[in-house]
């Protein structure tokens, strides 16, 4: 077996190598490609029309509700993963605990559903 830290050294090496590769390709692009920016070229794309209002627009709060729901279920996943790995040693007690935990979560899930948080209109 590897010592614990060595695995992550390799992961960091991958990050560096992939980053280097990306940068190399971009540099090649800079060398090979022409650079002649004009005013028209650097306008944001708007189907050929001049833009009418600032492009950094506001967006619907629907996305925010989904983010909230995600946080709830992602935390559930954080608890479920270690439970699944140690399933055999936790046994019946662990299983019943997880069922109770899931019922509590489903409670909130059903509430959100009935409240219409999952309807995307």
């Amino acid at each position: 077996m590897h010592i614990y830290g060595e695995n992550w050294v390799v992961v960091m090496f991958m990050v560096a190598a992939a980053f280097g590769m990306g940068m190399l390709l971009l540099t090649l692009n800079q060398i090979m490609a022409p650079t002649k920016p004009t005013k028209v070229k650097s306008e944001p794309y708007e189907s050929g029309m001049p833009g009418v209002s600032p492009a950094k627009a506001r967006f619907t709060p629907r996305f925010y509700v989904i983010a909230m729901l995600f946080v709830v279920f992602d935390i559930e996943a954080v608890f479920i993963f270690p439970w699944a790995v140690n399933f055999d040693s936790l046994g019946l007690f662990g299983y019943v605990s997880m069922v109770i935990f899931m019922i509590l979560l489903l409670d909130g899930y059903i509430y959100a559903w009935k409240k219409g948080a999952l309807e995307w209109v």
Partner: peptide, 27 residues
């Protein structure tokens, strides 16, 4: 062909983030 294409950056763009974002996806 793609290496030989001009790298355009739109006028209103946040230049640093615009340059870096594709590298994140790649890495």
């Amino acid at each position: 062909k793609l290496l030989g294409k001009e790298d355009l950056i739109p006028a209103g763009a946040d230049k640093i983030v615009f340059r870096f974002a594709p590298v994140i996806v790649f890495v």
